[in-house]
């Protein structure tokens, strides 16, 4: 069954002065999926997100939220959207509760009862009446999300949601985003410059470079055959010889051998190595680096 499209962007362009910064983006978000925006700094992720949420007016192209054009039906369209653009900047001199109250008042038909609901959802109930300036970055991030969820939106847009969080916070945030998409059926758009993060978080990803989408694909598809396996063995020469007879290998300076990562074959290769008397000291799965991926996808075209 075809899933419902919540956000549709068509041929979106933005010119600043004479320079075209966003050069025609087209993509769609579906219900219940986490969609990643991947690209290096300056690729146009933030500018695009700002156009989606109405902070910047596009030069041309259309943005539809739940079927409503945002330039014609701004108020109606924005009711379906919650967002954090860059850092969750809230009023430091107000308490968490008053911050949420402030944004509740800007949403028609949302009651004050909802404030404690979202506070509980993000786990801030205990500190909700403290001033925001006393919050840690992680708590601010959560309050930011609480704020975005106040109006029960269908789309959630998060710009670099794990920026500045510690590893525990990052994991917590990731689980929470997955929960929102899977259990609550939200469409979540997440931007990041870290491939590893997108891989763990997203269903589909659009790769942005210099204001164009160079590829939209499911994360699985994108990473398939791009993951590598690293081997460290003694004796090295013998091991290398065996592996070479099985697959293509690559040698890095420190004596590590890279092969493709192929779940079905790994165990078999390992067995052959061990049987031949080669001791395998390390086997690890290596993520492709974003730079390599870009290089591959753009065919080595240089970045501006």
């Amino acid at each position: 069954m075809e899933k419902k499209v919540t956000l549709a962007v068509k041929d979106l362009k933005k010119k600043i002065g004479k320079k075209e910064i966003i050069k025609g983006l087209t993509f769609e978000l579906q219900e219940g999926e986490v969609f990643g925006f991947l690209g290096p700094n300056g690729a146009g992720k933030t500018t695009t997100i700002r156009m989606l949420v109405g902070l910047i007016k596009p030069t041309s192209g259309s943005i539809q939220i739940c079927g409503l054009h945002i330039d014609e039906h701004f108020e109606e369209a924005m009711k379906n959207l919650g967002c954090i653009v860059e850092n969750p900047e809230l009023y430091p001199y107000l308490s968490g509760y008053n911050n949420l109250l402030h944004f509740t008042r800007m949403l028609d038909g949302v009651r004050e009862k909802r404030i404690m609901e979202v506070a509980e959802l993000v786990g801030l109930t205990d500190r909700i009446h403290d001033k925001v300036k006393t919050y840690s970055l992680g708590m601010r991030q959560r309050l930011g999300i609480a704020q975005a969820l106040l109006g029960k939106p269908k789309i959630l847009i998060l710009d670099e949601p794990t920026n500045g969080l510690d590893p525990a916070g990052i994991r917590e945030m990731r689980q929470f985003i997955r929960f929102l998409a899977e259990q609550e059926g939200l469409s979540v758009l997440v931007s990041s410059h870290l491939l590893s993060e997108i891989q763990l978080l997203c269903d589909r990803v659009a790769i942005l470079l210099n204001g164009t989408i160079i590829r939209i694909d499911s994360v699985q598809q994108l990473l398939e055959n791009r993951e590598k396996m690293a081997w460290r063995m003694t004796p090295l020469e013998k091991g290398k010889h065996i592996l070479r007879s099985l697959t293509k290998i690559e040698e890095i300076d420190d004596g590590t051998i890279l092969t493709v990562f192929d779940e079905q074959k790994i165990a078999e290769w390992n067995k052959k190595l061990v049987d031949a008397g080669v001791s395998v000291c390390e086997m690890s799965r290596k993520m492709p680096v974003l730079e390599d991926l870009f290089l591959e996808l753009t065919g080595g075209e240089s970045r501006e």
Binding site: G54, L55, A77, K79, L81, C83, V85, L90, M106, G151
Partner: peptide, 12 residues
Amino acid sequence: LGTVKLLLTRPV
């Protein structure tokens, strides 16, 4: 403060 980004992305 950067709060303008929250203010202007409301349905208002």
